[in-house]
Computed example of a mutant assay.
Amino acid sequence: MQHEYSCELRPMRPADLDAVLHVQAACYPVSMQEPAAIVLSRMRAAPGSCAVAVDAEGVCGYLFAYPSRLGVVTPLDAPFAPALEADTLYLHDLAVAPRAHGRGLARRLVAHLLEHGRSLGLPTSSLVSVQDTAPFWAALGYREAEVACPQARAALAGYPGTARYMRRSLRQEPLT
């Protein structure tokens, strides 16, 4: 008999910084790890849009997001600049510790923040898919989209490997 994985989803706090950096280091190559000062500034810039998953061992996953504009791509190592007239919830960084892989935690974190985006009245969500994760995002309703702005194309090109800008309507059925 398989037992359900028990964890709590809650807003990220500054006290979570070390644990978040530990999960980041376990999930990303050095070239994609962002410094503590940037991570902390993002928590402070969008406190309602950054969440952690906490299990019996502590933080086991996180998702950084913020209200933005469609077509805007946040470069690696750049602070968040939440838009006053946002039309998308931009998901910037999703990571799940190896000990929690295969338990649906990434999907739960995304569903949690998409619901937050809906509560803000945002019509869409967008993101940059890295590390060959486009199939995961496509399964959640995201589709590849073009970026027209030269700054957004440059930011997208700054990600290592193949990076894809993707978006989904928040009017679609919620994730379950």
Rank of each mutant, 00 (worst) to 15 (best):
G161S: 04
M166H: 00
Y90D: 05
D18G: 13
A152C: 01
A157Y: 12
A65P: 00
R168P: 08
R164K: 00
C7A: 13
R42G: 01
L21M: 13
G121D: 01
P160Q: 01
D55L: 10
V128M: 03
A163M: 10
H22L: 13
D16N: 07
S31L: 11
A154E: 15
M43D: 01
L89V: 06
D132R: 15
S6A: 15
E57A: 15
V39I: 13
G61V: 04
P98K: 08
H101S: 01
A157G: 12
R143P: 07
D87S: 06
V128Q: 05
A155S: 12
A83N: 06
R107Y: 08
P160T: 02
P79H: 09
P35R: 14
V110N: 10
R10Y: 07
R44K: 12
A53K: 02
R143T: 13
Y142M: 03
A134S: 11
W137Q: 08
A95V: 05
L9M: 11
H101W: 14
A139C: 07
L109M: 10
L63S: 06
A134D: 00
T124V: 00
S31R: 15
R69L: 13
R118M: 05
L17A: 11
E146V: 12
V20Y: 09
A36V: 08
D16E: 06
V96D: 05
Q151Y: 05
L120F: 09
G104H: 11
Q24G: 03
Q2C: 11
A97H: 15
V54E: 15
S126C: 08
T162G: 00
V110L: 06
E34S: 08
A83G: 04
R167P: 03
A26G: 14
G102I: 01
R168D: 05
G71V: 06
V54H: 13
M32D: 09
A97D: 14
G58V: 06
L40W: 11
W137N: 10
H92P: 05
F136L: 08
P150W: 01
P123A: 03
Q172K: 12
H3M: 14
V54T: 12
E57C: 15
V73H: 09
T88L: 07
S41G: 12
P79Y: 03
A19N: 07
A45F: 00
C60T: 10
A100H: 08
M32K: 15
C149I: 00
E57Y: 14
H22C: 12
L120Y: 11
V130P: 07
